[in-house]
């Protein structure tokens, strides 16, 4: 197996290395990928049509909204899949018992975490809300918010974190996130536009059609952040306890 692996890796590697000769040189602004019509449109017209300076967020949440919507669904399905794989649905094991005996970290770690946790969460909310003017957005802010709950579980024990963010609440959050995203698209349909065509929303949002797209990006990013937060925490709490949700790390 080792020899076969080495041979396969060498052959594929040499093929790919010889193919790099035909690639555009690194940093060439005239390369086919960077000079194409689509990329040029995104760079030159994003701010004019959406009033959002961060092109990445604009393309993510507006121009390629379908893509992001189904990526969010993929994350949700992965979270459900982890629960389905790990949870033992037969017998008394399936009932979630919140044990009080899983102990967190020492006093110093608890104190430090209780000091920095509010700042982490406020920064995460800032990243979600300010994602279309600075680096950030729903995915990053959601992961940070989920990581703050993971930190809570590491410092104070999983049972304490579960009392704040229980299994049922986690799943409701995840579903609500997708519901916000899809619901916003359906709202566009109801107002006479296409699915996820935000510019028709200017009749119910303040400002003109461009500002409507800017506000809509904020809404769908919030939806993404809901799902990602919930699934990241659910992933940690299931993986660290083998699906029993008690006696964690």
């Amino acid at each position: 197996m080792k020899v076969f692996g080495l041979v396969a890796v060498f052959v594929v590697g040499l093929l790919l290395l010889s193919a790099t000769q035909d690639f555009p040189s690194w940093g060439n602004p005239r390369s086919a990928a960077s000079d194409g019509e689509v990329s040029s449109f995104y760079i030159e017209k994003t701010e004019a049509v959406t009033k959002v300076p961060n092109m990445v967020t604009a393309v993510l949440a507006d121009f390629r909204g379908y893509d992001t919507m189904f990526e969010t669904v993929v994350i949700f399905i992965a979270g459900i899949g982890i629960i389905a794989v790990l949870r033992n649905f037969e017998g008394s094991d399936s009932s979630i018992d919140y044990d009080n005996d899983d102990n967190g970290a020492g006093l110093l770690a608890r104190f430090t975490c209780s000091l920095i946790l509010p700042f982490i969460q406020i920064f995460a909310l800032y990243v979600v809300a300010h994602g279309h003017h600075s680096p950030g957005g729903g995915f990053q802010g959601g992961v940070m918010l989920g990581a703050s709950y993971i930190l809570l579980a590491l410092a104070f024990g999983l049972s304490k974190a579960k009392r704040i963010f229980s299994e049922r609440r986690t799943m409701i959050f995840a579903v609500v996130g997708i519901f916000i995203y899809v619901g916003w698209g359906v709202l566009c349909l109801l107002l006479g536009g296409e699915f996820l065509n935000y510019s028709v929303l200017d009749s119910i949002l303040p400002g003109d059609a461009m500002m409507a797209r800017s506000y809509s990006m904020l809404v769908v990013e919030i939806g993404v952040a809901f799902t990602v937060t919930a699934i990241m925490f659910s992933m940690y709490s299931n993986l660290s306890t083998r699906g029993r949700l008690s006696k964690g790390l």
Partner: peptide
């Protein structure tokens, strides 16, 4: 944005 995501994820 990619760097931010990678640092968090």
């Amino acid at each position: 944005d990619v760097a931010f995501t990678e640092a968090a994820v």
